[in-house]
């Protein structure tokens, strides 16, 4: 997939680019308003990551331009402003998602994949890994055509893993993705442990080829 990062912080661009390239995306970047506009007009992207504060103009204006051009690119706003109005306005203007800085790279992956999948009406709607088929729209999981019933949190957890296969996911990142704001507690990492234990058991019982491995004490990896 082709992704455009519009962001003026060079270091952030680099690190996002490295991470997305690991997922075999083709990544380009633009660091100011006009370069970004040129690229949007000249090329087709599957997903555009858009920072709102740019040299030379407001990211929201860029979003308006994208919509005017009737581009099919998925747009995810990435902003440090984190103002409620920006979020509402951005989504109203047609952005697919809104990700507040700072974020986890794994979360960026998950969001990018979701946004691209939702854009492609006639494409593959399922995400598959090994003998597992995850349908994010209906929130169902099939293992060799047999449905595996998961509760809400277990599904979120599995979805986070299948959008980041074979990558190290830290416990903090997992806790934040699945339980959001409630992860500021010392024992939040224990939740992660017990939830993953449950999920592994369910996957194992259902005969999934995939497994979630603990990586020392710091996180997990789906293989």
């Amino acid at each position: 997939m082709k992704i455009l990062i519009i962001e003026d912080e060079r270091e952030l661009v680099q690190v996002m680019q490295s991470s997305l390239e690991k997922e075999n995306h083709l990544v380009e970047s633009a660091s100011d308003f006009h370069t970004a506009l040129d690229k949007i007009i000249s090329y087709e992207y599957d997903c555009i990551l858009l920072d709102l504060m740019l040299p030379g103009g407001d990211g929201l204006d860029l979003l308006t331009e994208i919509k005017k051009l009737k581009k099919q690119d998925a747009v995810i706003i990435i902003s440090a402003r984190d103002a409620v109005d920006d979020k509402v306005l951005g989504l109203d203007l047609g952005a697919d998602d809104y990700l507040a800085k700072p974020f986890h790279l794994a979360e960026l992956n998950a969001r990018v994949k979701s946004a691209i999948r939702r854009r492609k009406q006639h494409g593959e709607q399922h995400i598959s890994w090994r003998n597992m088929l995850v349908d994010p729209e209906n929130r169902t999981v099939f293992i060799e055509q047999k449905e595996l019933v998961l509760n809400r949190k277990e599904f979120d957890l599995l979805y986070y893993f299948v959008t980041n296969p074979e990558r190290l996911m830290t416990k903090t990142s997992i806790a934040e993705y699945v339980w959001g704001d409630h992860t500021d507690q010392a024992d939040s990492l224990d939740f992660v442990y017990s939830q993953i234990k449950n999920l592994r058991k369910k996957l194992g019982n259902a005969g999934a080829d995939a497994d979630i491995q603990a990586v020392y004490g710091v996180g997990y990896k789906m293989i």
Partner: peptide, 20 residues
């Protein structure tokens, strides 16, 4: 608070890449 967001993002993400 706003200005701190980007440096924190860069540091976090770099560490995450490093850990891999």
């Amino acid at each position: 608070s706003h200005e701190l967001q980007t440096p924190i993002a860069i540091a976090t993400n770099k560490l995450e890449l490093l850990m891999e």
